[in-house]
Simulated scan of single mutants.
Amino acid sequence: MICPDIRRQRLIIEGFYELQTMDEHCVRNFLAGLTDHLGMTRIAETLVFSPDAVSDLHHGVGGFQAWAESGCSLYTWSASRFFTLDVYSCKAFDVARCVDFVCTQFNAQSFEVREV
């Protein structure tokens, strides 16, 4: 392992959300809730974005939350109601607790989890 003295934990959750809407407000609230739920330290305002106006490949809304411990990124695809969440941290976090929070918030019944 390269640089073993730096602790790193990465989790990717992908699935289908069953919310009525996935908009900027929803993404902002989700990332704030996840930050608190995992006990991370917010160091910047949440970045929320949508490539809709400039992309033929990706339509949806996404966001990034920077943490003192690292950060997380969320991407959604509105047509398929699909999401990808990438969580990266130098501080240990409980994977099962994170997955439970995500699936509850997104009402996700179909999802996959990968620890990298």
Rank of each mutant, 00 (worst) to 15 (best):
Y75T: 12
V61K: 10
G15F: 06
A66H: 09
S70E: 14
Y88E: 10
F93P: 02
L38P: 04
N29R: 12
S70Q: 10
F111C: 01
F64G: 06
H58V: 12
A53L: 13
I43F: 01
Q109T: 10
H59C: 07
G63T: 05
L19G: 03
V102S: 03
E112P: 00
A68Y: 14
H37K: 14
G39V: 06
T76C: 08
D23S: 06
S50P: 04
Q105Y: 15
C26W: 00
E24D: 13
E69H: 07
Y75C: 08
C98R: 00
I6R: 14
G63V: 09
P4D: 04
V48M: 04
G33K: 10
A96Y: 04
R114H: 11
I13W: 01
S55Y: 07
S110C: 06
G63M: 07
R81F: 05
F111Y: 15
E115Y: 00
G33H: 10
G15L: 04
M22N: 03
L74M: 11
R7S: 13
C26G: 00
S110H: 12
V102G: 02
W67A: 05
R42P: 10
A66Y: 08
S80A: 11
K91V: 05
R10N: 09
L19S: 03
T84S: 15
I6T: 13
D100T: 14
Y88I: 13
A92D: 11
G71A: 08
P4W: 06
S70G: 03
C90E: 13
F64N: 09
A32L: 15
F106C: 01
A32E: 14
S110W: 03
F93R: 05
Q105V: 01
V102L: 04
T21A: 06
T41N: 11
L74G: 05
C3K: 12
H59D: 02
A79F: 07
A96E: 15
S80V: 05
T84C: 12
T41Q: 09
Y75P: 00
G62Q: 06
F49G: 06
V99P: 08
F30N: 01
V95P: 00
V54D: 04
Q9N: 07
T104R: 15
G60V: 10
V113Q: 04
R7N: 12
S89A: 11
D23P: 05
P51R: 09
L34P: 08
R114V: 06
R114K: 15
C98S: 12
R114P: 00
P4A: 06
R8A: 06
T76S: 15
F101G: 02
A53G: 06
H25F: 08
P4R: 10
R81Y: 04
V116H: 03
A66K: 05
F101A: 03
F82Y: 15
L11H: 08
S55V: 09
D36A: 13
L47M: 12
I43G: 01
S70Y: 09
N29L: 13
S70N: 14
C90S: 15
Q20A: 06
V102K: 03
I43E: 03
P51W: 11
H59W: 01
F106S: 01
G62W: 10
A68G: 01
V54S: 11
L34Y: 03
V95E: 12
V102F: 01
F64R: 04
